[in-house]
Write a protein that binds this DNA or RNA. Structure first.
Length: 312
DNA sequence: TTAATTTGACCATG
DNA sequence: CATGGTCAAATTAA
């Protein structure tokens, strides 16, 4: 931790600078998504560069900017732990805790959602008979993707999983990126500009259902991009997203697996006919990594894995 | 041997 | 203090 009170940069505290940078970044994000709809690719490149710079500046500035000091916590009973085990506190800045900037809950009968997850924890939850499983994106280490999800067996229907998604996928695997088409609709709201066209063709029942499930998950992914705005930097937006959280989990219970919520799909792609026409949908869920290449700007933006984050 | 999962400890939050 | 989320050593699977 840098000495908090130290005077630098003409008296501005690092926190204030950080605030400014975060605000600038927010604006850059918006700018970038606006440019998304313009033909000027160089403008997009400029904003992307801006984002890169901002992200690196933010990582440098953010408290604990380096990395959590993961020396060794874990003092197992038998473990040595000679020197009294330093408390080894975790950084406390913007880390998602109980209140995440954005969350989406989906109920599905399969756990596959097209992304690759790695389990990192399991916990018994107080008011639930079923334990909760914690997953993070497999690409967290190699690509810094901070997306996580929690899976819990539904109380009401044990054959279903309740999956909650946190964070945004910033990982990308070119071979598995689904088609992303552009909306012609101007963006009134970011939640409505994400467009993923899943090529589809085969229609047998099981794949059809699975595809819908995965499409749903991808839609979730897309929406999660909103988290970019709801980063710790912006309390107002965070609040919005927090309330949105409740709203979404109730309004989009994948239970109605049949149709993706219209508000999250562009006109024409929503609902029962998202068959765009191509027939190249992969058959193996694990082989297709749904990426949040969505939401236009953020998909590109994800190029710098720092968008979502500076890991405190 | 490497990668993924399991499991209990650690810690932030309310 | 209770609860929930994350870490990382230990364990298991590939």
């Amino acid at each position: 931790m840098a000495s908090p009170g130290s005077v630098e940069d003409g008296g501005r505290s690092p926190a204030a600078i950080l605030d400014d940078l975060l605000e600038v970044r927010d604006h850059a994000v918006k700018l970038q998504s606006m440019l998304q709809w313009t033909p000027s690719s160089s403008a997009a490149a400029v904003t992307r560069e801006m984002m890169n710079r901002l992200s690196s500046a933010l990582s440098a500035l953010s408290p604990g900017g380096g990395r959590r000091g993961s020396g060794g916590r874990k003092k197992k009973s038998g473990a040595v732990d000679a020197a009294g085990a330093g408390p080894l506190r975790r950084s406390r800045s913007c880390r998602r805790r109980s209140k995440s900037p954005f969350v989406k809950t989906v109920t599905a009968e399969v756990m596959e959602d097209g992304n690759q997850w790695r389990k990192y924890g399991q916990k018994r939850i107080h008011d639930s008979p079923n334990p909760r499983h914690y997953y993070r994106c497999t690409h967290r280490t190699d690509q810094g993707c901070m997306a996580t999800k929690q899976v819990q067996i539904s109380e009401s229907n044990p054959s279903e999983y309740v999956m909650s998604y946190f964070g945004e996928h910033t990982c990308r695997d070119p071979s598995t990126i689904p088609y992303v088409i552009e909306a012609e609709a101007p963006m009134e709201d970011y939640t409505n500009t994400n467009l993923i066209n899943f090529g589809s063709g085969a229609n047998n029942a099981s794949t059809s259902r699975r595809r819908r499930l995965m499409a749903e998950a991808a839609a979730v992914d897309s929406m999660l991009s909103c988290s970019s705005f709801a980063n710790c930097s912006s309390p107002v937006l965070s609040r919005e997203c927090a309330s949105e959280e409740a709203e979404l989990s109730s309004s989009l219970p994948l239970a109605a697996v049949g149709s993706a919520p219209a508000e999250f799909w562009p006109a024409g792609v929503a609902g029962d006919d998202m068959a765009g026409g191509t027939s190249s949908f992969p058959s193996s869920p694990s082989s297709l990594g749904f990426m949040s290449g969505s939401l236009g700007s953020f998909g590109d933006l994800a190029g710098d894995d720092d968008l979502f984050g500076f890991d405190p």
